[in-house]
């Protein structure tokens, strides 16, 4: 039971911390991106790419969480 609880906490931390990191990165990129968009609206494609780049972190966190929870006990 203890082991299951620790696994759940581990999975939660993996995705939670990754989500926080993604949020911090996206907040900064988003703010800068909006500023750039006002000057040059044609940059929307590139800004969108920059904005979604940090999402890899949370995806990797999610994958880690799934792997932790799928580990046979």
């Amino acid at each position: 039971m203890m082991e299951l609880g620790l696994m759940a906490i581990g999975a939660g931390l993996a995705i939670g911390l990754a989500a926080i990191a993604t949020a911090i990165a996206q907040a900064k990129i988003g703010a800068a991106g909006i500023g750039a968009l006002i000057e040059k609206p044609e940059l929307i494609g590139r800004i969108l790419i920059l904005l979604v780049i940090p999402e890899t972190l949370v995806i990797l966190g999610f994958v880690t969480a799934v792997i932790i929870l799928s580990t046979p006990r």
Binding site: T56, I59, L60, V63
Partner: peptide, 8 residues
């Protein structure tokens, strides 16, 4: 690994 988002 980024393609894991398809599953995610």
């Amino acid at each position: 690994l980024s393609y894991a988002r398809i599953m995610g």
